[in-house]
Simulated scan of single mutants.
Amino acid sequence: MQQAILLHNPGAGDEDHLKSDLVKAIEAAGFGCVYFSVKKEDNWKQQLDQADFAVVAGGDGTVRRVVKELVKRNTLEKKLPIALLPMGTANNLSKTLGIDPQLDYKSHIKDWKKSKLQRFDVGVIKNVETIDFFLEGAGYGLFPKLMRKMDVVDQSQVKTAKDELQLALEVLYDITLSAKATTYWIKADDTIYEGKSLLLEVMNIQSIGPNLILSPQAKTDDGLFDVVIVDEEQREDFANYIKKLMTDETAKFKWKTFKAKALTIDCKSKHMHVDDELILPLKNPVVLEVRENVLEFLV
């Protein structure tokens, strides 16, 4: 019998009830299961080698927290496949992997025995002072500003995940109209790009933020980043694109995009993010590299 380690980020008031339901569903599907709340404890890190695969029940931030531990494991430790039970707001990672967050967790669990392993590359970002990794994307400009604004905006009327995504689009629209463009210089493999951008994103999956699909052709195992840029002269078109998304209209936007395996970026933006974490801008230049086949997901 395969052994699962269930790593759950419980919401307020749902821990005991949902914990029991999740464990029962996993055991009913023919797996052993041990439960840990990643919100309250860290002792799950010492139990990873006792499991055949990890189950992450939560949103994109919870997945990153678990993966941060997995990527630190050395080559002598076994690679632990990850099964996702998407329970977050955006669930961008799950959607890229084709895991439908609208399905209930029992449906996902029933599919695990017939699932295949999907290889997943990880982005590494470094400069003279630090090194970090990302699963979804890293970038400058509009999205870091959106994250800062969402931390302080009134969310008293937000009742559901859909409400929160709608509010994020509204805030992004306002920011797009007023944001200052910043200069950038990029060496992508052997090609140089430069200009002034509102948004500069190095994507490892298809979407970020409020399910904004920046790189629909992105693959998790091709060894390449998808770099997406919105230049200053595209401000009005991009704002109109966001406005249409807010009203569920069919919307199209012509991204400036290219693929690369390795990047060196010098960007003057005061704002930067790595996945869903807002960070102080790293000292330029910043080097980004793809590390291939670091993770495996059950899909």
Rank of each mutant, 00 (worst) to 15 (best):
Q3R: 14
I5R: 15
L6N: 12
H8C: 04
D16M: 13
I26T: 10
A29H: 03
G32P: 03
F36E: 07
A54I: 15
K68F: 07
L76Q: 13
E77Y: 05
K79H: 10
P81N: 10
I82Q: 14
M87K: 11
A90S: 15
N92P: 06
G98S: 12
I99A: 12
P101A: 02
L103G: 05
S115F: 01
V124W: 06
V128K: 10
E129Y: 11
G137A: 15
G141Y: 07
G141F: 09
M147S: 11
D163G: 02
Q166P: 06
Q166E: 13
L177H: 08
S178A: 09
T182Q: 05
D189W: 02
D190N: 14
Y193A: 05
E201A: 15
V202D: 07
V202C: 11
M203N: 13
N204G: 06
S207R: 04
I208C: 01
P210G: 01
N211W: 01
I213C: 06
A218K: 15
A218M: 07
L224A: 10
F225W: 11
I229G: 03
Q234E: 12
E236G: 00
F238H: 07
T247D: 01
K254P: 00
K259Y: 00
L263T: 11
D266R: 02
E277N: 08
L278K: 09
L280W: 03
L280E: 15
L282T: 00
E289R: 13
R291A: 08
E296V: 00
L298D: 08
